[in-house]
Design a protein around this nucleic acid. Structure first.
Lengths: 301, 301
DNA sequence: GTCACACCTGAAAGATACTTTCGGGCGGGT
DNA sequence: ACCCGCCCGAAAGTATCTTTCAGGTGTGAC
């Protein structure tokens, strides 16, 4: 029995709070109430029966079961088991130090500490929620790709460029597009064996979905990196990599944590592809490193 | 009421194995088989139903329930919950194997865990090493800046763009330059009251140092974000913000952790500037958020 | 402004898992 | 060898979970 986390079957072990946040937007009101209760008090909810939890949240048994399903469990029974596990874990483990939100009058040192903590949390959530099977499939496609196109606009555009830069360094033919028109005109060139990657936090950025759809229709292997695994973009994605959605506030826009999350996914993609193509990737990496050395001034000291 | 082994009042939380041994002598043969299975593989048994466990141990459902009772639980259901908790607990216990370097033959899941851990470490290091006085000074300069120029090439160029994007959102006039020639020609336009920021991990990237020097000579306030506080770039920097340098390896180029570190610094700069210019920044942020909403497809839900 | 549609929601029936009851059978004691 | 006690599992009984279905509500189109 392997550790593998297949995308729909696997119940989340401890990454439940993260999963609740990720899926919350796609939930209905009643389901959100249930999810909230579950995330807020795992221990308490684990002690409850379906009927009990339904009454507590003012909903029906059916809704509770539906929520459990949405969170990735076969039924409420399994959600309850996971809940018990989670409760035991945070019981024995350290209390998750809940940091307050960043305030307007926080001193500089506090801002630094809070931002660092939040981003660390985002990384942990992302790693816990990442589907390694999907990731493996995406890596396999990239490793043998003839050509790779990456779409992203706004903040995600920078992530797209980051990935393209990395892939170029290991000898892949990769290009990042932030111009939607050029992206589409390039997408029509793709065919089977090529890979197209769309990066969008909202999962509904038309400028990014359109080129992915075109690539998909032309037979390319398509990958979506998004925070909304139920968003429109996944319609045209062979493989979906989910980024985590951290709570945001006025002083901490969503773009900040989504970018952190996206970059981790991108790093994972890159590293795994490097592994699989080590024979060619290693010398390519060394060469690019060597080439850059001449761009630096002579060492001081 | 203490945690003592009173057989009727408290169900055992995690001291289950001990309880099994304690009570084993008073058990009948069949019950011992059940208890043994439970103590031997909590995780596996938690996944089983009464019937399943009965079959596995070659006994009957009634015996399983009796065993659960003897161990202090109201019924099998509750034993199962405790089992799930126990499993999760000893699952989380064995995790500190991520400190090792990434190997070529690491499975995907390990790569994800190690990368996430490393980046978290980088964030912690950066936050700990960041000079809040220097940061405060840079923030003060930015908050009143007439114009902001940001220099960075390669991976740092993306960080520069990220910062520029953010500052633009709160109403500052910021521009990121990755073309060294254009950077220099723009730098000569700067004067006192303007801010120039150079981002370079090595601290010795000529293409970035040169425009910063020009800006410095023209009286602009200059900031360097670098991993080498003793590098050439700091010669022309009024304020130096130090990023952390994590250990690197063949499969994990330095660019990865330096980027993470740089982005945290950039986020700190942005957030603190937003604080100090809250009156104008908040509405600007809200407006940019609003403008983007129309770029998304209608909700799926 | 009205209509139609889709979708959420909960009640109740249906299925599953757990608990209890009860009689058979195996061992020890005399 | 016989009797007694008690362990054990089959089956009936009950609680819990799951599914189905019909009613209601909000949303978009005309």
């Amino acid at each position: 029995m392997k550790e593998s986390f297949t995308s729909d079957a696997p119940p989340a072990p401890a990454a439940l709070a993260a999963k609740v946040r990720t899926l919350a937007p796609s939930m209905t009101r009643s389901m959100q109430r249930v999810a909230e209760a579950v995330a807020g008090d795992p221990a308490g909810c684990a002690a409850l029966t379906v009927t009990g939890l339904a009454e507590l949240t003012g909903t029906s048994e059916a809704t509770v079961v539906r929520t459990a399903r949405l969170l990735g469990y076969p039924g409420y029974r399994d959600l309850r088991l996971a809940l018990a596990g989670l409760a035991a874990q945070q019981q024995s483990g350290r209390a998750p130090a809940v940091t307050a939100d960043i305030a307007v009058d926080d001193p500089v040192a506090d801002v630094v500490a809070k931002l660092a903590y939040d981003e660390q949390q985002t990384l942990a959530d992302t790693a816990a929620g990442l589907d390694t099977v999907q990731l493996g499939a995406a890596v396999a496609a990239l490793a043998t790709a003839r050509r790779v196109d990456i779409y992203g606009v706004g903040a995600s555009g920078l992530v797209a460029q980051d990935l393209a830069q990395k892939l170029l360094r290991i000898g892949l033919i990769a290009h990042a597009h932030s111009d939607p028109h050029l992206a589409v005109t390039n997408a029509v060139q793709l065919r089977s064996g090529d890979v197209a990657i769309a990066i969008t936090h909202s999962g509904s950025t038309g400028d990014v979905i359109e080129p992915l759809r075109v690539a998909f229709d032309h037979g390319a292997t398509t990958v979506a990196i998004t925070g909304r695994p139920d968003g429109p973009v996944t319609q045209y994605a062979d493989h979906v990599l989910t980024t985590s959605t951290a709570r945001e506030s006025e002083l901490r826009p969503a773009a900040m944590s989504s970018r952190t999350s996206q970059l981790l996914v991108v790093d994972c993609l890159f590293t795994c592809v490097t592994q699989r193509t080590y024979e060619t990737a290693a010398p390519a990496l060394a060469a690019s490193y060597e080439a850059l050395a001449h761009r630096h001034s002579p060492r001081t000291r």
